[in-house]
């Protein structure tokens, strides 16, 4: 510990400067969207980039009344797609990862490798046929068409398996088994509580993945009442060519939609187990 305190005593200006430069670069567009949301459409294209206007509340009001509050519907849809998709995905990854880590059965490695290979499949290879197949059963342009493909996450299963293998001792499972507990009960009351931090990580990854996914809802949905924020803002931007007043609304909408996510990140950061993916967790 003496060496550690000796090391922290110095000050390295160059590394600090580079880090702050990186931080400034990453904060720049976020700072801009905060400023730009307060500008009127006229000010947006005429005043200096970082000169604030005074129209933030007007912009929010305009956005809220635009097409009878369609924007807030997109926000609610996004929360539904990402939230429900994330929870279901974490649950499925938990059950599957636990089974792959703690049971020994014929075909285990084949099943694991086939599931994991799903990571490598380009999204379009899935999205186009998923659309065509869901169209055959009349499910396109429904909430399910975006939710169903978001539940299986090969990556989430991979993470859950590593986490179960590393954090759940075989002896604990064996002891419960000797006591005569049913397998599902062992999973529910012994394995699941231990796996929670790993599953929170899976949830966050999937939440971001669904919230970030543009291609799938873009292909599946036609009714703008079911759009997530990303597809909604894209269509608004597209109409901006003919109605420049929409640009201000798009910018205000961007700000309002990233703020809750940034808040979620800052509060949940300490639950992230990124060591799962960087190989820092020893299995």
């Amino acid at each position: 510990m003496t060496t550690a305190s000796r090391r922290t005593r110095g000050f390295a200006p160059l590394p600090t400067a580079i880090l702050l430069l990186g931080a400034a670069y990453c904060l720049l567009p976020v700072a801009w969207v905060v400023v730009a949301s307060s500008k009127t459409t006229g000010q947006l294209f005429s005043t200096f980039t970082f000169a604030p206007g005074g129209a933030l509340l007007d912009n929010i009001a305009d956005l809220s009344t635009w097409h009878d509050g369609l924007y807030w519907r997109w926000v609610a849809n996004t929360a539904l797609y990402a939230g429900v998709g994330g929870v279901l995905s974490a649950a499925l990854s938990g059950v599957t990862g636990y089974a792959l880590a703690k049971f020994h059965f014929p075909g285990r490695n084949v099943i694991f490798n086939v599931l994991l290979a799903g990571v490598l499949v380009p999204s379009i290879v899935l999205a186009v046929p998923q659309y065509l197949l869901l169209a055959k059963v009349g499910l396109t342009d429904t909430y399910l068409s975006v939710l169903l493909p978001s539940i299986v996450s090969p990556y989430g299963i991979y993470l859950a398996r590593i986490y179960a293998a590393a954090s759940l001792p075989d002896s604990l499972v064996e002891a419960a088994r000797t006591d005569g507990a049913q397998e599902w009960r062992i999973f529910r009351s012994i394995a699941l509580p231990v796996m929670v931090p790993g599953l929170v990580t899976v949830f966050l990854f999937q939440f971001v993945a669904v919230w970030n996914n543009f291609l799938l809802p873009f292909i599946m949905l036609g009714d703008d009442g079911k759009f997530p924020v990303t597809v909604g803002l894209y269509t608004m931007l597209n109409q901006g060519n003919t109605t420049p007043a929409l640009y201000t609304l798009v910018i205000t909408g961007s700000l309002l939609s990233i703020l809750p996510l940034i808040a979620l990140f800052l509060t949940l950061q300490r639950y992230w187990r990124i060591d799962l993916i960087s190989g820092g967790l020893k299995g």
Binding site: G10, T16, A23, C26, F214, T230, S254
Partner: peptide, 29 residues
């Protein structure tokens, strides 16, 4: 690097764009 300052702030600031979807990032830029 233990001798660098503002590490916690920089880590969070540089990680922040991960919370911004590609569509919105493209829109801002």
């Amino acid at each position: 690097e233990a001798r660098a300052r503002a590490r916690r702030f920089s880590r969070i600031a540089i990680f922040l764009p991960y919370a911004v979807p590609a569509v919105i990032a493209s829109l801002l830029w």
